[in-house]
Design a protein around this nucleic acid. Structure first.
Lengths: 231, 231, 231, 231
DNA sequence: TATGAATGAGTGTTCATTCAT
DNA sequence: CATGAATGAACACTCATTCAT
């Protein structure tokens, strides 16, 4: 039951920037980055127990000992990788500049970004799955998670408040629940694209499919937010 | 980076039926069932690479060689486990008897069943994740998937048709997309309960949380289905 | 700084009983003994950190996994080896039948046995040294040490009592101290035979040297025991 | 099976002279001394295979490459350490000024010094054990051992000759054997203090125990030397 | 049918040693 | 003179799988 041998190129984080085969010069920071990039690949492709230090070293074009020198051990390395994944998505969200948009437009933009991010960075989903399959042992010990992630909820909360003030959004929406809904509408099909494609005969990973899905999800979210609650 | 050591009891499939320690009495079918039950546990708890044949044998109260005699190898055993998981959820859905309900009631019942099933059988989610982390290698080779899974879509399609005929549901809904939405609204938070609990400080696995989530999801789906499309 | 490559054959415990190269038949007890014998060799030759599981497996004509199946891990294996060493010397002492001899003869016989045992089983000394270089971490956790070792002191105590009653031995001798003296007179030169041979140009491991040493030690001990204390 | 983690402070050679953290100021000789001191510690605490170049560098406040620059490799470094150990004990003996004492007093003083040296410098014993566990590979290749060590035997020989001339010591004593006896009476219990403490329930490393032991050993040696051989 | 014994190919990790600056 | 970076060869231990009975 060997882990996957070949994998769709899309499953590789974009971080990778392989350097010519030649000699490794004594460039610590560069080396660290190479290892981290290789580790993101590896953990995303194979999960925690399936990931191999050997392969990370090979792909980072260094030897295993160096990985231990820089990152301690496999578990610590995974923690760095995981944090990096969160940093990337949260920074992407920040760049959306939701405050500059009308409330509904803001929601839609967040929705489309989320869909895009999940679709374009399948390793992100795989990393989250890995950590949850592990029982969250790594994230439980991580620091600074709140500072990293709370801006998203705050941002979304402000959009909702604005919408309610303007009378265009219903008034009883919890921002966290809203985010979970938005994410869930894409996470489920994309995370399970292999099984769903097999059992329902779909081509979930195609751009066309995603576009359709976004339309559907957008309508659902907007429909929900537009309804005024019957008091 | 050892796989999880202890796990919430809920994470174990219900199939398990441990028998008194005494003797294995050459009861082939019984033995097979024991192995299968133990294997479901093991794959759900630890994923494919984390699962251990030793532990399966121990929990099935037999020896490893027997597992190979019955199931071939680890990969084949996983395939049987995975199919079993699909059988269980599809049978649950069939028992819902959606035809006997009004369209909206039927949708809501399916939604609540899905939520409950994901919540009560976390191993189901874990198994799906495992297979998708594996790149769907197992399911790709499985036969009879269509017969097993298509009834769900057909059933849902009929509900939608009835609702449209009665004029209570919008007319442009794809049953598969609807199912993906319903499932996704719960799959995402439940599958990622460890990470989400950590980063957003929630108690996602609690019954109370699920109840709230169901209310929210229900409203969203109904709002969406009730909207008449502006032609 | 590789551990020794070749070593005087004398440094190997006598337990070794190598079986023809052919096939390993499923004989658990035999296998266990083979592993234990090989482990005694290995730990005696190379110490704890220098001992190699690979070599033990090779010499026991089995594979490494089997060693772990039988003994748990390297540390546990070392504990079994160490206990075995104590069992062997204590059994040898019991067989001396000191009670049947006159007090002085009994002391002399114990002395000669001790000398012989140290000389003929250099691995015994090496094993003790290893454990003491380790800070006694293994023996500290061992059970049943008292039952194993106290008979020696008791036996010696009885000899002394008899000698005092008969008026042939001085009356203020502690049996443990006496044993430490007897052992020390041989342990030091034999344990340090390599360094002493090098710095004093002796052939300490020869039978002739041992014979001389025994004469000298015997006289010293007897002289001491014969002196009546000036009250 | 990691080497010892913490160790009684007494187990460290006195050579150590840690300098403030600040800067290493290109002082070659000073650096060499620091490395040597750290190496003595390391080899004494952990033996040859357990000793770590990393730790030596850390404790010497330099980097590993420097150690190689100064001492060649681990094995060569160990040789320097070992020689240093011999130098220290032989110099101690020289300072005893045995010629100024009566023969019996001289013997007793040597005995007490030896006991004290072994007790106060347990790393000395550990170093000797290490080298002997290695099969004497290092000392065999060392030069100038004779000049270093023969003065002890010569000194002791002269004391014996004086005693015999004065008629207070027996006439057939080999000075080397006498030294081996004296040393052995302390080496054995001190070298094996961990195992002996465990199996005989003693507190061998205490000052009180040593005092008792000295009394006993003294009596034994004097009794032996005082006896006139029955021709 | 069922089992305990045995195996080979990994797997994470360590460490003495060398390189490049 | 001094250093941080880099390496390869081990090494303890694991695990899916097969053998012999």
């Amino acid at each position: 039951m060997k882990p996957q041998e070949t994998i769709d190129r899309r499953y590789l984080p974009r971080v990778v920037a392989k350097r010519p085969v030649e000699a490794r010069k004594h460039d610590a920071e560069r080396t660290r980055q190479d290892i981290l990039a290789a580790a993101m690949n590896e953990f995303a492709e194979h999960g925690d127990t399936g990931a191999r230090i050997d392969r990370i070293a090979e792909n980072a074009r260094c030897n295993k000992a160096l990985i231990y020198a820089y990152f301690g051990n496999k578990e610590d390395l995974f923690a760095v990788v995981l944090r990096e994944a969160y940093i990337q998505i949260r920074e992407g969200e920040k760049r959306l500049d939701l405050d500059a948009l009308s409330p509904k437009e803001a929601i839609v933009r967040l929705l489309r970004f989320t869909a895009k991010h999940f679709h374009d960075n399948p390793w992100f989903i795989r990393l989250l799955n890995t950590e949850n399959q592990r029982g969250g042992r790594t994230i439980r010990k991580m620091n600074g998670l709140n500072e990293l992630n709370s801006p998203l909820v705050r941002m979304l909360g402000e959009v909702l408040k604005r919408g309610q003030a303007e009378g265009v959004l219903r008034s009883d929406v919890d921002p966290l629940h809203l985010y979970l809904s938005i994410a869930g509408l894409f996470y489920f099909p994309l995370s399970n694209s292999f099984t769903l494609s097999a059992i329902f005969d779909q081509d979930i990973d195609s751009d066309r499919w995603l576009e359709e899905r976004m339309k559907c999800a957008e309508e659902m979210v907007i429909a929900y937010l537009s309804v005024e609650r019957k008091s």
